[in-house]
């Protein structure tokens, strides 16, 4: 394998990494609180607010029903407004984050739903504030479930990021399309596939390990 090919692959892998990591961070920063609000605003819950819950739930479902490739194109004006351009890895992070936010929000909400309601009751009886219930009870208790969900999201983002590559986002997807598809370079195509597989495997392994760590003693 020539040095240029190697450099191409390395460069693309770093770009994919960059996109996935930053999109995951941004999506979690928004998705985690959103998921918590989705849960706590439910009827008979600590921050009960049925209208807010319905509004957020509708918003989440709406975003999730748009296929990623369409979301990405439709978001170009917003992306341009935020990043200044609609091409490149930085630009790809915007739609990737937006696509992952509702995903993470639902995952967090569902993970917290698994927490025994009796714990909220016990904490309320201790005089805990809503914030204390969220930070000391709900999130720690739901952490293994949240971690598994985040792993799932990150793996999806690896796939999405390849799609982003197809419209000028860079990364492994871009490389595979330009060299593998348009120049019939089977070797590069196969290499990108192998790297993707390794990426997904490593992510899953790390996620499992972390979730196991969080569910220690349960």
């Amino acid at each position: 394998m020539s040095q240029t090919t190697l450099l191409l692959l390395l460069n693309a892998t770093v770009e994919t990494f960059y996109m996935v990591i930053f999109a995951s961070i941004f999506a979690t920063l928004v998705g985690l609180p959103l998921g918590v609000i989705l849960y706590t605003s439910r009827k008979n819950n600590i921050l009960e607010h049925p209208y807010l819950h319905q509004l957020l739930a509708a918003l989440v479902n709406m975003t999730r029903s748009i296929p990623f490739i369409i979301l990405m194109v439709a978001m170009i004006p917003i992306t341009r407004w935020i990043v200044g351009t609609s091409i490149g890895t930085n630009a790809a992070i915007v739609p990737l984050s937006v696509a992952a936010i509702p995903f993470i929000a639902r995952i967090v909400e569902n993970a917290i739903l698994e927490v025994d309601r009796g714990l909220i009751e016990a904490a309320t009886a201790m005089g805990a504030t809503a914030w204390q219930i969220i930070s000391k009870i709900l999130i720690p208790e739901a952490l293994p479930g949240i971690t598994n969900g985040l792993t799932l999201t990150i793996i999806s983002l690896v796939g999405y990021s390849a799609m982003a590559g197809a419209v000028g986002g860079g990364g492994l997807g871009d490389l595979a399309i330009r060299y593998g598809y348009q120049r019939f370079d089977v070797k590069i195509m196969l290499m990108t596939i192998v790297i993707m597989i390794v990426l997904v495997q490593v992510t899953q392994w790390l996620g499992d390990k972390l979730a196991k760590q969080f569910s220690k003693g349960r």
């Binding site: 009796g118 714990l119 016990a122 009886a125 000391k136």
Partner: peptide, 30 residues
């Protein structure tokens, strides 16, 4: 007022994410 009213339950309602010591510490952290 609730901080001065302890309560115990049929199904214990303890945190599975914490060990014995940290479970007892919870109300004190609050």
């Amino acid at each position: 007022a609730r901080q001065k009213i302890g309560m115990i339950f049929q199904h214990f309602n303890l945190l599975s994410s914490r060990n014995v010591y940290d479970n007892i510490a919870l109300p004190l952290e609050l």
